[in-house]
């Protein structure tokens, strides 16, 4: 059984909602990423989404854009990101790691090289923001045959036909984008999200994570009640800009812990 499946099965048995923090690999420096991943796990993260920095992150708001810029300025490329997962795995064999990013770095590396390397360092899932299932070509099959979960986004604008298509192509979990907007946007409407999740659940038994717009304990707790996973990114990444670098290993896991407590309360 895959790490992702084991993870969500366990959570389901425990009747807990997964907490999935997102950080951009290499932000603010590559050296911080692996220690931060371990600290996130210690703080209650169930899955880690690791952002592949990209020069033109068109689906991201300013906070994650700047994280990408910092990571790139520090010289973080896709190969470095894969190396970080490898290092992380030396100490952690259980927490699933999902790479999240844009297609171009993967395309330039080559699908085969990327998938083989990702498999060897034990990446569990790949979410490519600007790659809808329609354009998957052989990439989806490559991922599946290497036991890496292709994860796709669902949005408020997704039609029933495409919900079906996306569910068919996804394994691991589905990522529901809670609002029309970019990452780190304003408040989400929990009722509207609940309605859409009910619609999506007609087509799938896959766990559904909700992201975009979860920024504090309160919103995490309310989303936890209706979803299988709470995904939080910008709220964590913002701390990189407000906290001194030497405090990040405490500040970021600190917020994760706070969210975890609110969700479990």
């Amino acid at each position: 059984m895959s790490r992702l499946q084991t993870c969500f099965d366990n959570l389901r048995t425990q009747k807990r909602t997964a907490l999935i923090p997102f950080i951009t690999a290499g932000d603010p420096t590559p050296a911080l990423t692996v220690p931060l991943m371990h600290a996130l796990v210690d703080a209650g993260a169930d899955v880690i989404e690791l952002g592949i920095p990209f020069s033109d992150p068109m689906a991201d708001g300013p906070v994650i854009q700047r994280a990408s810029e910092r990571a790139l300025a520090a010289g973080t490329g896709l190969r470095d990101v894969l190396d970080m997962v490898k290092t992380f795995r030396e100490q952690n064999q259980t927490t699933p790691v999902v790479l999240m990013g844009y297609l171009n770095p993967i395309e330039i590396m080559g699908y085969k090289t990327f998938v083989k390397t990702a498999k060897s360092v034990e990446v569990d899932g790949v979410l490519t923001v600007d790659l809808p299932p329609e354009e998957l070509a052989d990439f989806g099959e490559l991922l599946r045959s290497h036991a890496i979960a292709p994860i796709f986004l669902l949005a408020p604008t997704t039609t029933p036909e495409r919900i079906k298509l996306i569910c068919d192509q996804t394994s691991g979990y589905l990522y529901y984008v809670s609002l029309k907007g970019v990452t780190g946007s304003a408040n989400l409407d929990v009722t509207a999200v609940a309605d859409k999740l009910a619609e999506i659940r007609q087509y799938t038994d896959l766990p559904i994570g909700v992201g975009f717009g979860i920024k504090d304990a309160e919103s995490a707790a309310s989303v936890a009640k209706i979803s299988d996973a709470v995904i939080v990114g910008s709220a964590l990444v913002r701390l990189v800009e407000t906290e001194p670098q030497q405090k990040l290993l405490e500040a970021i896991p600190g917020l994760v812990r706070e969210l975890r407590q609110a969700m479990d309360a």
Partner: peptide, 20 residues
């Protein structure tokens, strides 16, 4: 019909924009 000019073109956008 899917917007491909040979291997080029297509639709590579975040999910929210697929329906629009």
């Amino acid at each position: 019909e899917n917007g491909h000019f040979g291997p080029y073109g297509g639709i590579f956008v975040p999910e929210t924009l697929m329906q629009p």
